[in-house]
Amino acid sequence: MYMQNMISIRSRYDDVTRAFRQAPWRVQTQIIATFAAVAVVIVALGGMYLAEASRTATAGRDVQSLQIQKAELEMSINRLNASIAQMKSVSRLETRVRELGFVPAQSTQVEFIIVDGYRKGQVQTATSSASVPDETPDYNETLGTWLARTLSTMIGLGG
């Protein structure tokens, strides 16, 4: 029984060998298919690299653009602050209140009222608003880390 099986396998192998010998295009097809598969993988990897590089470059452009925008906004804020301070300058306010008909009060014109139980409150002085800590992470993802992250995500999703 064992011998019969061995003879049968040997016979099939001989048939296949003969068929390939008689039709060499089959070997060529196999080689071409292998090369094509490798090429597809390379092209896919290249495409992914290009896509990633493109995204990185776009992000870089965005960062540059935001940096310029930030600088312009800071300039604008400074200008507006200076402008507000100029609008609130004593000389300007004094001119305006005089135009509105007000005059400086004299000590004899001021009336102080004693209110029982009232205690003078503490003077509150303005302080600058609390600064927000910069928690923006650096963009430092490489193609390798991106691939690892994507694959782990896919595996995670599959699981």
Partner: peptide, 26 residues
Amino acid sequence: QVVPFDVALNPNPAQGSDLYLTLDRE
């Protein structure tokens, strides 16, 4: 960085401190 690919965030320099004086502008 001129090349967007290499762009990185620059450090934020520490701003000078604000001073509140005893002067009363009025």
